[in-house]
Design a protein around this nucleic acid. Structure first.
Lengths: 339, 339
DNA sequence: CTGAAAGCGCTTACAG
DNA sequence: CTGAAAGCGCTTACAG
């Protein structure tokens, strides 16, 4: 008869009694942390089976002062790029035998702070943070508790954490150069909000490339969502009728840009060339397939988990930063202009 | 000087000492579970602040025998429908002050079993399960432990759990009727795999609607992914040259169907009408915008969390099932045939 | 290799 | 309203 107070749930103690061994031995069998005589091991395994024993990690967590879970904090996941990223993180975590807690912030700093505070209380093993508030004190509190934080794609002020960096400036610089090489001169950049770090950096990369060849940048930065792309493209096309190519600063904005194109009956690439930064799945499926410059999202996600796991194993390891570059995925949305 | 053994982390005991009260009082202040004299309360709050105290849920979890986390188990999230669903679940959980653990199974039964076993060990508060193996014994083990399981969109054999059901049969029956009402007779259904419950049910709904009016069903069920739609549509178009409309059985399959259309230069809706079951965001954005029949995904997600919360509050409540219907979102991909 | 025992940091019945 | 104490179910140094 189990003595456990939790309804119909055997404990290690029940198993130990049934197998005629100590709870220490049962624990050793389960964790595999130490050798146990094979006949005792067999008795323990039989007892576990007979009792339908399910280990209770709650107590192990307390004892070990850690949960085998990492947290991923992002704005929202109903953006194909983000869900691809989260998926990659989840897979990598799962392979390392860690669960993944998903937190969304809607890019609202106070929500992010709430989430981070909750993660501290839960003592998650680590957090992958695509932050909207680099200076949040909650980040430091996590670090103070010994919970590693990996900054993903967005800087964090507290420099104790590792980081996965995407080189947006250089990537978009090269993206712009790609258009210039195809003979385009009047190239506009419909970007996301300047308040969002990667979007701001992309704008910088574009401007750099244009200025390097003595051209005036033509930019818009309404918002990082679809509506911003729609509005930005509309205004830009009104003001600059001689544009031959547009760069959409991210996947959401690109959807809006395409909407504007449709409103006006603009055909890609005959009327206007289009290059998208980021490569959501639909860019490879629409007609015409869209040329993109994109980070290797899967690898970005697994890098983050790798950094986290490394620090979990060695909390005092030197601070590390992994940089990923954007890569050209050439498709059919960019026309080559005659000399 | 804190006595805690965990590095630089104050415990309730440290707070109690500093405030000159018992740990019980500190606990009462934090949980708000009982009244505390206001001056003592103030002392406790001051002490917490001075020590930078962060409550440690690990111990509370053990004591309470539950974590304030629910788990969501789905195949993968890089499908817009699934990420929308997961997002909705995450939001609803967050509003109820629960965290959300995300598990993906790739629709592989053994992976799902592993995940469920892990959730049992972690003693999550509840699980929202879009299962690929209705008969998995791990589901019963969760229920045995008193962990509520809500079956989402896919049946679970163990009938102790609540369920959120989507009425695919009736929905697709009506979708098919919608096409018939527009004058179509030769309507094909490019569905997902018959091994996946919702896809199988959708096929049934289509066949029912066709037979009701004395028409022969024309179906394909290659796989539930994009490739299945591509192949299925190609074969079907080869064999049935007189088709006037196609139904794509889910969003992934629809992408493949569109690929086939592009390969063959088929224009929607002039050459062929298209109706998609499910409404991933891109259906409202492509040209022409695609008419769909879809479940209210947000509400499906929040229903699941509501059922879970209800059962958490009252574990012995009667078993409940919430049914959602597919709704028509009429756009421009279906032509009306004369006659 | 094995067991008795301490302890992880909370919460809550119990007594006052 | 408050405190002392038990206990949640494990893991692991310690002694043998």
């Amino acid at each position: 008869m189990p003595r456990s107070t939790t309804a119909n749930s055997a404990t290690m103690r029940d198993v130990a009694e049934r197998a005629g061994v100590s709870v220490a031995t049962v624990s050793r069998v389960i964790t595999g942390a130490a050798k146990v005589q094979s006949d005792r091991r067999a008795r323990v395994e039989a007892a576990m089976h007979e009792l339908g024993y399910q280990p209770n990690h709650l107590s192990a967590n307390l004892r070990n002062q850690r949960v085998r879970m990492i947290a991923t904090v992002v704005s929202q996941i109903d953006d194909p790029i983000v869900s691809e990223l989260v998926q990659a993180i989840q897979r990598a975590a799962s392979q390392a035998d860690y669960g993944m807690l998903l937190c969304t912030t809607g890019d609202v700093a106070s929500t992010e702070a709430d989430q981070l505070r909750g993660l501290a209380r839960q003592r998650v093993a680590g957090v992958v943070l695509r932050s909207c508030d680099p200076a949040a004190p909650e980040i430091s509190e996590l670090l103070d508790l010994g919970i590693p934080v990996v900054a993903l794609d967005r800087t964090v002020r507290d420099r104790r954490g590792d980081a996965v960096v995407i080189d947006h400036v250089e990537g978009v610089r090269r993206a712009t150069q790609h258009l210039l090489e195809q003979g385009h001169r009047r190239v506009g950049f419909v970007g996301g909000s300047r308040d969002i770090e990667p979007d701001a950096l992309r704008l910088v990369g574009y401007e750099a490339a244009m200025r390097e060849v003595g051209l005036d940048p033509i930019t818009s930065a309404e918002s990082s969502r679809m509506g911003g792309g729609w509005l930005g493209a509309a205004k830009m096309l009104d003001r600059h009728r001689d544009l031959t190519a547009l760069i959409a600063g991210n996947g959401q904005v690109a959807l809006g840009v395409l909407d504007t194109f449709r409103d006006r009956g603009i055909h890609v690439p005959d009327d206007l060339s289009l290059l998208v930064v980021d490569d959501p799945f639909w860019c490879g499926l629409v007609e015409p397939r869209i040329t993109t410059f994109a980070a290797p999202v899967q690898r970005v996600g697994s890098s983050a988990v790798r950094l986290l796991m490394r620090r979990l194993e060695n909390p005092t390891a030197g601070q590390r930063q992994v940089v990923h570059e954007l890569e050209l995925r050439e498709r059919r949305s960019v026309a080559t202009l005659a000399g």
